[in-house]
Design a binder for these strands. Structure first.
Lengths: 189, 189
DNA sequence: TTGAGCATGTAAGGGGTTACATGATTGC
DNA sequence: GCAATCATGTAACCCCTTACATGCTCAA
């Protein structure tokens, strides 16, 4: 039940509506979790019912009204408990890796295509995260920000997201190159 | 529905029983996917029912009999189709990152403890995977193996798993150090 | 006028986790 | 004797995904 806590953590930086949360969790700008809008609306309802967040209506003229949510003291206490509990390590679960695992037995061209697609996606995300980090740290240098910036949490999770995508991109490119070369070698025989 | 394909991919290297599969998927030796024994037994039953794998009984004296499974031609065809389909990118979903995201608002000591635990876990897995890679490539050098070794798929997924855990370990250590230093600085004020 | 963005949901189904159940053998 | 390993499942529950539904505004 970590979606609860992910939502609570996301709301620590200020009140947000379900829609705003959804955008953050969807693009993976929230690098610590991923969720679809439907989940978030449902989870926010549950959180409010349980008193961990409180919502207030914001009336808007040109756009539909919205409800924004804030973490309550009970919500903070719940996060505190969560942080102290030990979780199990997260495992990789990725379609692409399954395809690569089978690369010797299926059409290598298709696998190479998937790897290339993913590398491009990772590259786009790397640029996105780079910008986000720059925005978070403002005009301070990284060292300086890490030492004295307020709100270090989001910066650290962003760094993990960045490293993850760089790992993805590098591995995808290298793997694609290796499979390509083997395919070429095979064709020469 | 990628567990199917993960199981098929795992069976490409030779027939395995549900129990053997479970061990591989549990320890994450299968770096491309993770699954619990119950899922695997259920999935193997479905795969056999659908004709994608075929099982045969192996009678054993001292231990309980077991059923081992092989990928059928239909199974291979299914994998082929799967490899050609494009999947969506996999997102991070990790308790630990949620905790770090909230690090400014909860007891930093607890978060540091969680980071340290995870770094140790990652370290253990790095050693495990290092051994696995050495075993896979035998006495050949890596370059040589990547070019001419048969069964490159498992090696590549293993490489991804290794890089992932190295990323984890490095990030955990760095983040823990940063939080530690900030805590010390705060205490001095 | 068509599509994109804002804003919030419901419902069904599939996949994963947790808990439970059984029973034999091997090593400490 | 007790724990761990081998070996295979069932059942309940929760979480996530997919599909569907509504309606208003703004820009191309």
């Amino acid at each position: 039940m970590a979606l609860r806590h992910a939502v609570l953590a996301a709301l620590l930086d200020g009140e947000l509506s379900g829609y705003q949360l959804a955008k953050a969790f969807d693009l993976g700008v929230a690098n610590f979790w991923h969720a679809l809008p439907q989940q978030l609306y449902a989870e926010l309802a549950r959180l409010e019912r349980d008193g961990l967040v409180s919502g207030r209506e914001i009336v808007q003229d040109t756009r539909p009204n919205k409800r924004v949510f804030t973490v309550t003291d009970a919500g903070l206490a719940e996060l505190e408990r969560f942080a102290a509990a030990d979780g199990k390590p997260s495992f990789i679960r990725d379609d692409l890796l399954v395809k690569v695992q089978a690369a010797d037995h299926v059409d290598a061209g298709e696998v190479i295509a998937r790897l290339t697609e993913r590398a491009a996606f990772a590259d786009a995300k790397i640029r996105l995260l780079g910008g986000l980090l720059r925005k978070l740290r403002g005009d301070r240098g990284e060292e300086e920000f890490l030492r004295h910036g307020e709100r270090i949490g989001p910066y650290l999770t962003c760094l993990r997201g960045l490293a993850f995508e760089q790992g993805n991109r590098d591995w995808c490119r290298r793997s694609a190159a290796i499979l390509e070369e083997r395919r070429a070698a095979h064709a020469r025989e």
